[in-house]
């Protein structure tokens, strides 16, 4: 009955052997005259789980939104699967291969849960409705919410809506999933059901870039933790290193507030 996250790639024994999927080089981003990203460089390999943390205003959401072109930037490059996302002609095609989950869910309120999950497969992937329905139901089962397929988003709890949003993104069979604070808008009792879904997804081998304040989750799933402050990557490394042997005062100060 229960579906599974069948992604194309399984996590390899050595993550470094995997090809680079996201290649961000020297990214500068301004809002007007305020610089919010300072020469950010970050690579994400296939099947890798990268968790980005940092204080609010550190530019972590902006960085993630640059990966699928929701934000423009003034200098540097972002390559996703070796395609430059700054090429407007390619943007829709690249975006179709990148799943994104937002803090505020952003489900389409006028469509049922099933229609939300079928919309892009039908209109962007040109799948038949029957095929798309099967696919959507598969992922709704994966996020354990198939019984809500005919409900409207407004009739679901926040946690349920966020799981639908994950299913909607997965139905496009993305190469990469971006999460922008996926549990920050949830009531405390609903955080766990969403985090459990993310852990399952991580274990299936999906490539994930996740902005979150959930440090327990970060320690559990991250291959690499990236700490950002004031628009810069301050430290990056495996969770054990970041949590247990922070190199900078800024990270130590951040961790002392979070844990």
């Amino acid at each position: 009955m229960s579906g599974s996250f069948d992604t194309a790639t399984r996590p390899g024994p050595a993550a470094t052997a995997q090809p680079i999927l996201v290649d961000i080089l020297d990214l500068d981003k301004y809002y007007g005259s305020v610089q919010v990203l300072h020469g950010v460089t970050l690579t994400v390999r296939r099947a890798e789980k990268v968790v980005i943390c940092g204080p609010s205003g550190s530019g972590k959401s902006t960085l993630v939104r640059c990966i699928n072109g929701l934000e423009t930037f003034q200098a540097g490059t972002v390559l996703v699967d070796r395609t430059d996302i700054a090429q407007p002609r390619e943007l829709d095609r690249i975006r179709a291969d990148i799943g994104m989950v937002f803090q505020q869910f952003n489900l389409f309120p006028h469509m049922t849960v099933l229609e939300n999950c079928m919309f892009a497969p039908v209109w962007v992937r040109k799948m038949s409705r029957a095929q798309a329905r099967e696919l959507a139901m598969h992922y709704l089962e994966t996020v354990r919410i198939p019984d809500k397929a005919d409900r409207y988003p407004g009739q679901l709890s926040g946690g349920q809506q966020q799981r639908v949003a994950i299913a909607r993104a997965l139905a496009m069979k993305p190469k990469l999933m971006l999460f922008d604070e996926p549990t920050s808008a949830l009531d405390p009792e609903m955080v766990k059901e969403v985090l459990d879904t993310l852990v399952d997804l991580a274990q299936s081998g999906m490539t994930m870039v996740c902005v979150t304040h959930e440090m327990g989750f970060a320690r559990q799933v991250a291959d690499r933790l990236v700490f950002m402050d004031q628009g810069r990557v301050v430290e990056a490394g495996p969770p054990a290193q970041i949590f247990d042997a922070p190199q900078t005062d800024r990270l130590r100060a951040f961790l002392s507030q979070m844990l």
Binding site: D92, R93, I94, R95, A120, R168, A169, M172
Partner: peptide
């Protein structure tokens, strides 16, 4: 209409007219 609606659709690769 909240901006998040457009962003969610863009993120799925939905063309603008649609």
């Amino acid at each position: 209409i909240p901006e998040g609606q457009r962003e969610a659709a863009w993120a799925l690769g939905v063309p603008r007219w649609l």
